[in-house]
């Protein structure tokens, strides 16, 4: 049986992998994940890919909103900027994907900094609205700068290649996605425990106090915007390769709201929570649907009369119930379950 962890130093406390067991399970998970294209059908792989993209975007948003406390309703704009940057670079300049995806991140980060400065003075819902306006402006921009973005005609993205080897298939793109997800998750996990991450948390908890203890608010807030939008941009780059075709309609306010939902359902300020939330919200409609299909087969009289809106309603209801029952999100449930296992059979 595992005993309670006893830590002797601060270094030990902020270790990424707390115990050997964590490492063990992670390795197991990695093996299962990496072998996925060998045993799962392309449908599952595609779903994993879009979950992966959502994870990156959600982690990015969580750095800004969860860690630093700056509410953003404009995250879809950064995803759009990243997606369009990599699509344009790939289709018009034939750049390889390993350049275009980071380039998407960099362009998004640049705009993140641009947005970060004017937003320094805004707080709470006012900030949410300002970022939302930014999202609308970006959407207008990609709709109307037709010479560059092809506007409402949409832009096709060529399949990524590496050393003459095409990665267009979801099962191959899968490895690209997994690489970026792993890399960026580890980076975020690391970031959270450095000076920068602690500064972010300090700003979130009390900005005035943070400034008093010597944190440069301007610098760190803008930095949070930059990092968050970089993540959004990278997610966008992957998105463009995964859907192979971009259209301004894909990047509306609703997408931003979806990302917000992910980090709240997952757990604010927690990297693991972002992952939970992204996977949950991507997979949930399918799970509900699978359940509905199953029930439909059991009760034949429902056949043909079933309204798919029930699935969406169930989805909305689930989000509500989640937050009412568990406001700390999936991450909260996870850590509680973990603790109760750890402490079994003693409840405390």
């Amino acid at each position: 049986m595992r005993s309670k962890t006893f830590r002797e130093s601060y270094r030990e406390d902020i270790r990424i992998f707390k115990t050997i067991w964590v490492k063990f399970w992670l390795v197991l998970f990695a093996v299962a994940l990496l072998s996925l294209p060998l045993w799962a059908d392309p449908y599952i792989i595609y779903m994993v890919n879009i979950s992966g993209i959502a994870i990156i975007a959600a982690i990015g948003l969580n750095i800004l909103t969860g860690l630093t406390g700056q509410i953003s309703l404009g995250h879809s704009a950064f995803v759009a900027l990243g997606a369009y940057t990599s699509a344009i670079l790939a289709s018009k300049m034939d750049m390889p994907f390993w350049l275009t995806i980071p380039a998407g991140g960099v362009v998004a980060a640049f705009f993140g900094i641009l947005l970060g400065f004017p937003c320094l003075r805004l707080k709470g819902l006012y900030l949410a609205m300002a970022t939302m306006s930014f999202g609308v402006v970006v959407e207008y921009g990609i709709t109307h700068w037709e010479s560059l973005t092809m506007g409402v005609r949409g832009i096709s993205v060529p399949a990524p290649t590496i050393f003459g080897y095409t990665l267009g298939d979801p099962s191959k793109l899968f490895y690209v996605t997994v690489f970026f997800v792993t890399f960026l998750t580890l980076a975020a996990k690391n970031l959270a425990r450095t000076r920068i991450g602690r500064a972010f948390v300090a700003i979130r908890d009390r900005d005035v106090a943070a400034e008093v203890i010597g944190i440069n608010l301007t610098k760190y807030k803008v930095m949070a915007f930059a990092i968050s939008s970089f993540y959004g941009g990278v997610a966008g780059g992957l998105y463009s390769y995964s859907t192979t075709y971009l259209h301004p309609e894909n990047f509306t306010l609703l997408l931003s709201i979806e990302y917000i939902a992910m980090i709240i359902v997952g757990g604010l300020g927690s990297i693991l929570g972002s992952i939970f939330g992204a996977v949950f919200l991507t997979a949930m409609p399918d799970i509900i649907k699978g359940f509905a299909d199953f029930m439909g087969r059991q009760f034949i009289f429902l056949h043909g009369r079933y309204d798919e809106e029930w699935n969406i309603a169930a989805f909305g209801l689930l989000i509500m119930i989640f937050l009412i029952v568990e406001p700390t999100g999936l991450n909260g449930i996870w850590s509680r379950v973990k603790t109760s296992f750890k402490n079994w059979p003693f409840t405390y």
């Binding site: 709201i257 909305g316 689930l318 509500m320 937050l323 009412i324």
Partner: peptide
């Protein structure tokens, strides 16, 4: 705020 978003979907 998120709960109200859930409510809106519902």
């Amino acid at each position: 705020v998120m709960v109200t978003i859930g409510l809106s979907i519902f």
